[in-house]
Structure formats: structure tokens, C-alpha cells
């Protein structure tokens, strides 16, 4: 029952990428991934340049290559789809290593593999260089709705507390003779989930009252944010700009 996500991906640092305001990084990451996804799949060179851009950002951020490689495996389920597509797609067949595969399916598989991988790498770059709290702050400065900010802030603040409670409940169960195995653990785990919901609800009521007592008025304070100069927007947005240019060139008709 160990969590797949137990450790947050953030890698503390003080590189220019780390220090960039979170709203700049968020917009740049979304724009970059959109540029990658919009690039025509036949433009193989374009994805090479995109990868170089990502590598350049990593070298500035000082995050080692292997760190990303280990974490990119989250994408694996979709690699499976990419491998299956050439065999199940329709259209003209072609021979690859003696196997008849669909040409269209092969391109589609490549498309998912290339864009999915670049997408994961860009998202990992964002996660590695930005603190969770700053991500929410960035969303707030990008005018995400108030309810979203409140829920996200409290969720991030308390998810470790509640996950810890879950761990303690499991240890308590085991120390009283439970032997969690295979499907039989489902019952205890699900009833534990019910208990956890009640504890979360009651904790939520207490937290809410404590917040009211301290002057909670319905929205999260945004903190004092110095306005971001045009130069930093350009610097932070430059990788996305390169990727967008690559897209424009690759998608240019004729």
C-alpha cells in the first residue's frame, strides 16, 4: 500500500529556472506542451529540436538527466498503446523486420511516444523546479477561481497528514493481528477508508472553525507579489517560444 506518489518531485535549488515566478513557469509549460502536441507527427526533426530545448532547460536548472529518466516511467501505460497501434490500425500495410504493420498505425504510435515523452519531460521539469505551494500560488496569480485555490491549498497542506493517518491505521490493524494479503485486505482497507472519511470530515470542521477564529473571510491571501518584468516573461517563456516557432515552421503548408 506504499504510495506511488509518496515523494513530491520537487528538487530544491537556486537556479534561474527555480527562481522564475511560478505563473511564468506554468504558462510556459502549458504553451510548450501544446506546441509539441500541435506539431505534425511527420516532422521528425521538430521533435529533436524540442528535446534539445528541454535538455537546455535542464542544464540551466542543474537537474541531472538520470533523475528525469527514472521518473518518466510514469508514462509506461501509454507506451503500450503506442506499441499496439501499428498492429491494430487499418490502412496500407508495410513490412518492418518481416512483420506486416499498418503505416498509419506506426506513425500514430510514434506520435504518442514522441509527444507523450516530451510532455512528461516538460511536466517533470515544472514539478522539479517549483515547490507545490508555489504552483498553487502561480495558479492564483493566473486568476484561477477562488474555490480552486482554497481547496488546492488546504488539500496540499493536509494530504500528508491524512496519508499519515492512513499509515497509522494500517499499522494499528497489523499489530492487532490483521494480515493484509491479496483480495482479502480489500474489506479492511475499504472500511478504513470510511473511517478516514469521518476523521477527515471532523478535522475539516475543526480546521474551518480555527480558521474562522483567525479571521478567515473566504479567500486565500495572495501574498505580496512583485510585478514580473517583461524581461523575465521573455526569458522564462523563451523555451516555449522556440517550441512554438518549431511548430509554426513544421506546420507551415507547402
Amino acid at each position: 500500500m506504499s504510495g506511488g506518489h509518496a515523494t513530491v518531485l520537487h528538487r530544491p535549488g537556486d537556479s534561474p529556472v527555480h527562481l522564475l515566478p511560478p505563473q511564468v513557469k506554468l504558462l510556459a509549460a502549458f504553451a510548450a506542451v501544446l506546441g509539441v502536441v500541435a506539431t505534425p507527427r511527420e516532422a521528425f526533426w521538430a521533435f529533436g529540436i524540442d528535446l534539445l530545448v528541454v535538455l537546455a532547460v535542464w542544464s540551466v536548472a542543474g537537474v541531472p538527466l538520470g533523475w528525469f529518466a527514472r521518473r518518466a516511467v510514469i508514462e509506461t501505460p501509454f507506451v503500450l498503446l503506442a506499441v499496439v497501434l501499428p498492429f491494430v490500425s487499418g490502412g496500407p500495410r508495410m513490412d518492418v523486420l518481416g512483420l506486416a504493420v499498418s503505416a498509419d498505425g506506426l506513425l500514430a504510435g510514434w506520435n504518442i511516444l514522441a509527444k507523450g515523452t516530451l510532455g512528461v519531460l516538460i511536466a517533470l521539469t515544472l514539478a522539479a523546479t517549483t515547490q507545490p505551494r508555489d504552483l498553487v500560488l502561480g495558479l492564483q496569480r493566473l486568476r484561477a477561481p477562488g474555490w480552486f485555490i482554497t481547496i488546492a491549498t488546504l488539500m496540499l497542506r493536509y494530504v500528508d497528514v491524512i496519508a499519515g493517518e492512513l499509515r497509522r491505521m494500517r499499522i494499528a490493524r497489523i499489530s492487532r493481528g490483521d494480515d493484509p494479503r491479496f483480495l482479502w485486505q480489500l474489506g479492511a482497507a475499504a472500511r478504513g477508508a470510511g473511517t478516514l472519511f469521518l476523521r477527515s470530515y471532523e478535522r475539516g470542521e475543526r480546521v474551518h472553525r480555527a480558521m474562522l477564529a483567525r479571521g478567515w473571510a473566504g479567500h486565500m491571501p495572495a501574498g505580496s507579489a512583485a510585478p514580473v518584468g517583461a524581461l523575465r516573461w521573455v526569458a522564462g517563456g523563451s523555451p516555449a517560444l522556440v517550441i512554438a516557432t518549431v511548430w509554426a515552421v513544421a506546420a507551415w503548408p507547402g
Binding site: 474555490w147 482554497t150 480546521v207 473566504g218
Partner: peptide, 12 residues
Amino acid sequence: DRTAPLAGLLAA
């Protein structure tokens, strides 16, 4: 908005 903190705990 005032009770949204409760929703935050439930999201957690």
C-alpha cells in the same frame, strides 16, 4: 467560500 476549507480536507 467560507466553508470551502472543509472541501479542501475532503479533497485531501
